[in-house]
């Protein structure tokens, strides 16, 4: 009975103006620039060279691949795991450092607050390519070359200013009354921070967590620069697959496409799962 009535109401309430088709067609035509390549990537992962359906391309997940002259790539689950680890450690490091610092910028007075806020913005605009050479020297002096932890530190350091600035925006929107109430009840400043303010700013933390995870998951160039092995993470695994001999890919296109899809899928799934919070929060948290 109830569902029937609701259905009926919905039909009656539908006052959406007609004529949407024109816009949808324009949009589909315009979007085909990105739909077609992804569809092409997907179909070539699923087909052999002559176009018949196969799942053979996916065997790299558990089998070694021969590149050239005795060079082998390990099964793909290993680099996938280490990519996951890399991105997770990076995201956790960013959260642990950025959230307290953002709280300090948002809610406390200290000497040089304005100046440091300005520095945050300037550092946020700082390009990593300009420091590439110093990073090479620094990491080799610190003995961190060929260790993923060194690259994580670099990524975190380059990522922090932007994350702090974003997080500060979220803290600015948290109500002062809650904080006052907690302080009046005798909680220390730090206790107020992690018992009252952090839970209130959870969506913001989620945004930074997801964004920094994505940034770590997709990292290629720094890992390629500082890691010697060809399969330390999924990106360098794919990079090694893309090696060419006489202008042709050594690994067949289908396998490469399958590896690429395997690298994208977790990102898309993760984003779709958190999409509601992310899109909502970005509305409140954008700078202007």
């Amino acid at each position: 009975m109830d569902t029937k009535r609701r259905f009926f109401e919905r039909v009656q309430v539908d006052d959406r103006p007609p004529g949407v088709l024109k816009h949808v067609i324009i949009l589909i035509l315009f979007s085909s620039i990105i739909i077609i390549p992804y569809a092409w990537l997907f179909t070539s992962a699923m087909t052999t060279r002559d176009g018949s359906f196969t799942l053979e391309n996916w065997s790299f997940l558990w089998q070694e691949i021969e590149l050239k002259r005795g060079q082998y790539l390990p099964p793909a689950y290993k680099p996938l795991l280490s990519s996951l680890m890399f991105a997770t450690i990076m995201a956790v490091c960013v959260i642990v450092t950025a959230v307290p610092a953002a709280y300090a910028f948002s809610r406390t007075k200290f000497v040089g607050r304005r100046f440091m806020a300005r520095m945050l913005v300037v550092l946020d605009a700082f390009p990593s390519v300009a420091l590439l050479i110093s990073f090479i020297i620094l990491l080799s002096k610190m003995g961190l070359v060929n260790k993923l932890i060194g690259v994580i530190f670099l990524k975190v350091a380059m990522y922090l200013p932007g994350a702090i600035w974003l997080m500060k925006g979220f803290f600015d929107h948290v109500n002062w009354d809650m904080e006052w109430a907690a302080i009046v009840d005798g909680a220390s400043r730090f206790k107020t921070f992690y018992k009252v303010i952090v839970p209130a700013a959870k969506p913001g933390i989620l945004v930074i967590l997801v964004n920094s995870f994505l940034s770590g998951w997709g990292e290629y160039i720094l890992i390629n620069l500082f890691m010697r092995g060809n399969s330390s993470t999924m990106s360098s695994f794919i990079g090694a697959m893309m090696d060419r001999e006489d202008g042709r890919f050594i690994v067949s296109g289908g396998v490469l496409a399958a590896a690429c899809i395997c690298y994208i899928i977790p990102v898309i799934i993760g984003f779709v799962c958190t999409q509601k919070t992310l899109l909502q929060v970005k509305q409140g948290g954008s700078k202007q």
Binding site: T108, L131, F190
Partner: peptide, 17 residues
Amino acid sequence: FPFAMMTPFLIITSIFV
């Protein structure tokens, strides 16, 4: 207190930036 909260950030930024 503010500086205590910012310590990890300040350390990482000064070493790596």
